[in-house]
Every structure is written in structure tokens, then in C-alpha cells.
Computed example of a mutant assay.
Amino acid sequence: MRLLAPLALSLAMAGCASTPATPRPGRAPFVPIPTGTAGLQGVMGRNSGQLTALLGQPVADVREGAARKLQFRSGTCVLDTYLYPRNGGEPVVTYLDARQPDGSPIDRASCVAAFSIRRGG
């Protein structure tokens, strides 16, 4: 019995021992995604007539309530423009999204520039 008490105590103490902490891999640095409108000034704030004159005929024209989406395609990218009325006026582009024809991401300003190059501007 005398041997069991120290053995039980040492086993109990061993259970309390801490294991060395394994270092966690470092987190990748935060890289902000540009959300501004740099390079998009030629499209932002334009109405549907101005967009058509600038980008050509849209391949899709979707209306939902007061909102409107015009989609334009080139060999380089697909450009979705979202038009909403401002202060009760005519709907104008307030947001746009771009992607490559296969769905891969592309910079929005690069896509707008591709349309400009295509049309000779």
C-alpha cells in the first residue's frame, strides 16, 4: 500500500504536466482589395444611352424595379453595370463588376480599358 500512494501521486502529477506548445503558422498578411473607382471614371455615373455609346450594345438588359443591369462582352471580359436612380433622376451606373469570359477574376478598370481599346478610344 505504501508503494501505491507514491505511484498514484506521480501518475496524477504526470497528467498535469504541460506539453510544449507547437508554434502556429503565421497568418498571411492582409492585402486590401481595391474597391475604389480609379480607372472607372468613364463608366461610373453614366446613363444607359451614354454606356451604349461608350461600350456598344449590351448583350443583356435586366430590369428589376427601379434598378437595371446592362451586361457588355468583349473578347477580353464581361462587364456588368448596375444602374440605379439618384435623387429621383434617371438611373446611372453606381456599381460595376467584371470577369474574364471563363469566369476568372479581372480588374474592373482593365476590363473597361479593354472596351475602350476595342472601340478605338
Rank of each mutant, 00 (worst) to 15 (best):
S110K: 15
L54A: 06
M1W: 13
V59I: 13
V31D: 06
I117K: 15
N87W: 09
Y84L: 15
Q71W: 04
F72H: 07
R27Q: 12
P85L: 01
G75R: 13
R99W: 11
I106H: 07
R86A: 15
A14V: 08
P23Q: 06
G88I: 04
F30D: 14
A109L: 06
K69G: 05
M1T: 15
P20R: 13
E64T: 15
D107T: 11
A53G: 08
P20K: 10
L9S: 11
S18L: 12
R46N: 05
G65F: 00
G56A: 04
L51W: 01
P105R: 07
S10P: 04
V62D: 10
Q41W: 06
G120L: 07
P34S: 11
F30T: 12
G120P: 06
P32I: 07
I33Q: 13
R86P: 12
P105L: 03
L40F: 01
F30Y: 12
A109E: 02
V62C: 07
F115P: 00
S10W: 09
C16F: 12
T19Q: 14
Y84G: 04
K69I: 11
A113C: 02
G75F: 00
Q100Y: 09
L70K: 02
I117L: 11
L11W: 06
T35L: 10
V112I: 10
S74T: 01
R27L: 14
L3K: 15
Y82P: 04
P29Y: 02
D61V: 06
G56Y: 00
Y82D: 08
Y95T: 14
C16H: 07
R118I: 15
A21M: 11
G36S: 06
